[in-house]
Structures are given as C-alpha cells and as structure tokens.
Write a protein that binds this DNA or RNA. Structure first.
Length: 497
RNA sequence: GGCGCUAUCGUCUAGGGGUUAGGACGUGAGAUUCUCAAUCUUAAAACACGGGUUCGAUUCCCGUUAGCGCUACCA
C-alpha cells in the first residue's frame, strides 16, 4: 500500500466477465483488451471474473480455451473471481431486494419457448396477478413448496424514466413502463445473470463497466437492480459490436473458426498485431496512427476515441482473415528483433516437419521476414533452407524468359559451378563479385544469369536475394543442387528431342 | 410488433455549418531491383434518402429507409 488514503474514486476498477459457454471469441477478446487498456491507462485495476452461473451451458473445456486465448494475448489481470463461488451472496442480495418490497414471487410457470407468436403482440411486461399477490398468500404458497421465480418489481404508471450517462453513447433514457419485470432468481433458486452481475459489480467495487453494446438496453435493468441494492451504479460504457461482412454478428455456426482467438494464434499472428488490429475496430486515436505497439495503445487509449457504430471484420472464404489484420501483422513481424522473431518462428517450422536448428533459423529469419505476413507462411517461404532434397520442380523454370534456351542455361549453370567451386571466401560480397564477373564473361545481364542459379538452388523462381541465400546454404549444398539442375536440364533436352 | 442504438470510399476510420471531405487496408499504375517481397510515388474510390434551420449543410433538427441490439426462470 503505497498510499494509505488514496481516494477510491480516483482508482478505476474494471472487469472482464466472460461466460464459459464456448471458446474465446474475438469480440470478447476486444472487450477484454479495451478494459485492460482502460485500466492500465488510468493506473487502475482489472479484474477477471468468470460469469459461470448457467450450469447448463458451462463447460470446463470452454474455461480452458478462454484462459488459453487470454494467455496468448499476454495481457495480465490483477484479481480473479468465479461467480459460481459467490452464489450465496447473490441470493442474499435478491432476498434483501424482496424484503424492501422491490421484488415479488412469480408462481406462473416459466414461459415456453414461444418465439415470434406472442412477441408480435407487444412487449411482455409481467405475468398477470403475480405482481399484486399479497405477502401472506405469497409466503403461504412458497411455504407449501410451490415453485416460483423472484422478479423485480419495476416501477409502473408513475412516469418513472430510468437514465444513465454512457461513456460512449452519451445520455440514455428509457421509460420504466417499457421495462419488463425481469427475473432475479430462477425457480430453482439460482440467481440470473442480471442479478449476479450487478451484485458482483457492486461487491467488487467496479467503477467502470465496459462491455459490448448488446448490453446497452440491459443497463436500464441493471440501474434498477443497483437501486434495489441501495448502491450507486458504476459508470457504464458500451462498445460497438464486431460483425461479419453480412452484417450479422460473428458466430461460430455461421462464420466458423475466424471468430476464435486461437485461430489467429495458430495462423501465425503475433499477439501485438492482433491487439493492434482489434483496437482499430471501433476505436481510433484520431490522429491517423495505425501501427501501434501495446505500450503506445496504453498511452493513447481513452473512451472518447470509441465510436458508436458496429465494425465489420472483413473476411471471406478466399481471405479468411481481414486483410488489414494481415498487413498489420506483417508490420509487427518486421518490427521484431531478429532473435525474437526467429524464436517465434521455430514452432511453426517444427510443426511443418522441418528440422530447423536455432542458429540456422537465426540466419534465415532476416531473409524471409519481409516475405511473410503470417508466421504460418514461414515453412513455405523457407523450406529450401531446411530440406535435404528440394521438392521436384519443372526443369523449364531454370530457363530464363526472353530468348534464352536450354543450351545457354546449361552453360550458365556449368560456369556458375566452376566459379563457385573456386571462390575463396564464401560470403555475400565475393559471391556477388564472382557471379557478376561470370555473367559479363558470358555476355549476360544479371537477370538471365541469376535466374537459373536461383531456381537450381531454391527450387523456384521467387525467393530471397540470391547471394544471401547461397551464403546461408553453404558451398556444398549449392554445388550439389546446381549439379542436379544440370542433370534435370539434360533430361529435359533429351525428352523434347 | 415494442423499445433502444447506428448510418463518411469495398472495409476500418478522421473530420465537421463554408475543406480539393484526410489517413489506412485492399485494388490499378509507376519507381527501385538478380526474381519475389519490402519500400517510395501515384490513380480510382465515400458523406443512405427526403424535408427543415441557415446566406450556406455531409456536419444541427425532424422524418423515411436500412442495419444491429434487447424484448427468457441465456449470458
């Protein structure tokens, strides 16, 4: 405790409260990131709270996948709670509200999943008769064992307007007459989400609730609950939603794996880039900055920069990730230290079945870093550095375009082989010198001279710069591969003859 | 249906009563170059519609339309 009487009002306490009913969703991840950024920017506290009151739908696998996703993001939290361990507190709070006369027992059976039919008639507000049930009769029926739900007695007919000032959406208000008598306790005695959430937010002294806009209209109910609890509500700030290109909200069923955070991890996004990308969806520093490391995001993040309209994550079947996310990832990749990137690349190569010695990968990394945007592309970009034998390629690729023929190509290869065998120092400088001299000797420009060698050595036309590549590969491998290319070329010649 | 929220290039966004409506991604063209990238330059590309208010609206107000959310003893 550095300061004994630090004013609690000046120390924000925010929370991220996921329900473990599936993997960590990108929308949830963004909510967490915004909360984290808010806490760190304001030197406050961020709390992780597992909102696991729905025993039917909760799974342990989901809990694990949420932690897995968050661990990957690398953003820590300061306190951790589980709602299922706090149910007694929630129940007591519900009965306290009941004792004040602000809630009542509803003995009507639960609504069947009726759907459109009745909702088309108008808003459902309460079950007739239950609100007015006398206390004695209510107590008697409860004592007789009749099941009931506990509902909030929303003020009616007195023109009450519920209002709050949203940190993003501004002044919000709604007539209480439009709000239904929502449940606090289910007929099995368990608290509902609304109750648990508010009781915990109060008990954990949350000062700012930053959450998805899908809770905007729920907030009116929450204000009422805080009122019933006799506690001042925290400040609310709602975030615009993330939606798919078709405008629908991101769902696993409709949109597949793109909605899961681990999909980004597995494709080779670095968390810094993923965080950066998510921040750009619905928030802006308002100064044209786009590439931002986490430290800078912390410095720049404010609720004023959050906008109010939904943002679409622009993916499709052909491009499974938003092109902007991919681009940002490329930038972050290039911003990493070579050692760092190299270490991160390692598992991707191993997973592709390549034996990548760390020292060698360290040399290869600078050659591929600006040729990949996702770490998952590394194996394809660097394969020829690590395989024993090149994948089969078309011998015709060896022959440069523009009038060159197999005979000339063969001459290039043979010359290269001789020159390379004789180069005193196997390094970039002398290799380039030697090869350019050789090209001049053959009366060739660099392009036609280098392509056959590149293809021979890398097995394809597009690759990193030749001499850096050959330096890393080493003399023996280069000579051997050029020799094989000559043989291929010979076979091609005899075939067409 | 009711209630709430939203509306600037294809996408993410800046802006705001008078601007050539800015940036980024993506796309096209060019430069550089041993290929591919990276990098740089450059082009095309937007204020949903209709009414007000005003000397003047993309900006403010109202309406329409569209989209989204909530409308459960889910969260």
């Amino acid at each position: 405790m550095p300061e004994e009487n630090a004013s609690p009002a000046t120390t924000p306490r925010v929370r991220f409260a996921p329900s473990p009913t599936g993997f960590l969703h990108v929308g949830s991840a963004r909510t967490f990131i915004f909360n984290w950024l808010y806490a760190r920017h304001n030197h406050g506290t961020i709390i992780f709270r597992l909102d696991d009151t729905d025993v039917e739908r909760n799974t342990e696998a989901s809990v694990q996948s949420i932690f897995e996703g968050l661990r990957w993001l690398g953003l820590n939290w300061d306190e951790e709670y589980k709602q299922s361990e706090r149910l007694d507190l929630h129940r007591r709070a519900a009965w306290a509200i009941f004792d004040k006369g602000l809630a009542y027992r509803d003995f009507a059976p639960a609504h069947a999943a009726e759907g459109e039919a009745s909702s088309a008639q108008g808003a459902w507000l309460f079950n007739p008769g239950m609100r007015e049930l006398g206390r004695e009769e209510s107590d008697r029926r409860a004592a007789a064992g009749e099941p009931f739900a506990l509902r909030y007695r929303v003020p009616r007919g007195d023109g009450r307007v519920v209002q709050f000032d949203d940190g993003v959406y501004g002044a919000m208000s709604k007539a209480a007459d439009e709000i239904e008598d929502f449940a606090l306790l289910r007929s099995d005695g368990n608290p509902t989400y609304h109750l648990s959430s508010c009781v915990d937010d109060g008990d954990l002294r949350i000062t700012q609730i930053i959450r998805g806009q899908d809770h905007l209209t729920n907030t009116f109910k929450h204000i009422l609950i805080f009122e019933g609890l006799g506690a001042a509500p925290p400040q609310f700030a709602h975030l615009p939603l993330l939606v798919a290109p078709d405008g629908a909200k991101l769902s696993k069923r409709k949109h597949g794996a793109v909605v899961s955070v681990t999909t980004y991890r597995d494709a080779g996004f670095v968390p810094e880039a993923f965080i950066n990308f998510l921040c750009l969806l619905g928030w802006s520093p308002k100064n044209d900055l786009e590439f931002m490391p986490v430290a800078q995001l912390v410095q720049l993040f404010t609720l004023e920069g959050v906008n109010r309209s939904n943002a679409v994550v622009n993916f499709s079947e052909e491009t499974p990730f938003d092109p902007k996310a991919v681009h940002l990832n490329g930038e972050h990749l290039r911003a990493l230290e070579v050692d760092d990137l190299s270490a991160r690349l390692q598992p991707f190569l191993e997973r592709a079945g390549m034996q990548a010695a760390p020292e060698k990968l360290r040399e290869v990394t600078p050659l591929i870093r600006e040729r990949i945007k996702l770490m998952g592309e590394a194996p394809a970009a660097a394969d020829f550095f690590f395989v024993q034998e090149l994948a089969p390629y078309d011998a015709a690729e060896l022959i440069p375009p523009k009038g060159a023929d197999a005979a000339m190509t063969l001459r290039v290869l043979k010359t290269a082989q001789e020159v390379l065998a004789g180069v005193a120092e196997w390094n970039h400088g002398s290799l380039e010198h030697a090869m350019r001299d050789a090209a001049a000797g053959l009366g060739l420009k660099a392009g036609p001279m280098f392509q056959p060698i590149r293809v021979a050595v890398c097995g394809r036309k597009n690759a990193p710069p030749l001499f850096e590549t050959m330096t890393v590969l080493g003399r023996d491998v280069c000579l051997e591969r050029i020799g094989r290319a000559e043989a291929k070329l010979g076979a091609l010649g005899s075939q067409s003859a």
